[in-house]
Simulated assay, not measured.
Amino acid sequence: MAGKQGMNAEFKKFISRGNVIDMAVGIIVGTAFKEIVNSLVKEILMPLIGLFLGGVSFVDLKIVIAEATEQTSEVAIMYGNFIQKIIDFLIIAFVVFMMVRTINRIRERIEAKKRAEAEEAPPAPTPKDIILLTEIRDLLQQQ
């Protein structure tokens, strides 16, 4: 039983670490973000791209290898789905890039502001005990 309690304590320690919690939050937010981006791609961008291509839907693009018969279904290479996935990936990658770029720029501005404030701030006054020790040192050097 002692081993089980030790494992429980170890698991609690592991799960309460900041990086594990951050990772869980990232996964949850990432999943929700994926749904938003998928909706953007499938419901807004792809119809516009299809319109520019003459009403073609990428999902419908295929090469039929064997026609459907009464006993078998159609055998086809669905290259349109592949194209769709590539476009989805590129749009998602671009959106993530723009988010990271924006976050990095904001972070750089905050750090630059902190550096500027640190340069403008007067130095902290010397503590009294340091002043006293400096005076004692100087007096001892004079003797």
Rank of each mutant, 00 (worst) to 15 (best):
K4A: 11
V59Y: 06
T126H: 10
A124M: 15
A32T: 06
K4P: 04
L40D: 00
R137W: 06
F33L: 03
T102G: 14
T69I: 08
M7E: 14
A66G: 03
T102R: 12
Q143A: 08
I103L: 14
K128W: 13
D88P: 01
A2V: 04
M1D: 15
I83R: 01
T134V: 03
S39R: 13
L140S: 08
Q71V: 11
V29F: 09
D88K: 02
L40Y: 01
I36H: 04
L139P: 08
F52Q: 00
D88Y: 15
M23Y: 10
F33S: 01
F11D: 03
A76D: 14
K13N: 02
F52E: 00
V64S: 06
I65E: 03
A66P: 02
E111H: 12
V29R: 08
P123V: 08
P123Q: 11
A118V: 03
E74Q: 14
P47R: 03
K13F: 04
E70T: 14
F58G: 01
I15D: 05
I65L: 14
F14V: 01
G6D: 10
L40A: 01
S39M: 13
K128M: 13
I77H: 12
I83E: 02
F11E: 07
F94E: 08
N81Q: 13
I106C: 04
R105A: 14
V37H: 00
S16I: 01
K114C: 06
Q141M: 11
F94A: 12
K42F: 11
M1L: 11
E108N: 04
P47I: 10
I91N: 08
V100Y: 12
I44K: 07
V56D: 00
S73R: 04
A24S: 03
Q141A: 12
K4D: 12
I49Y: 00
A121C: 14
I36F: 15
G54V: 00
L139W: 10
E120G: 15
V64H: 03
N81D: 11
E35L: 15
I130F: 08
G26S: 10
M23I: 15
V96G: 07
M98D: 10
I28S: 11
I136V: 09
I77T: 10
D88M: 10
E108M: 03
K85Q: 04
N8K: 14
G50S: 01
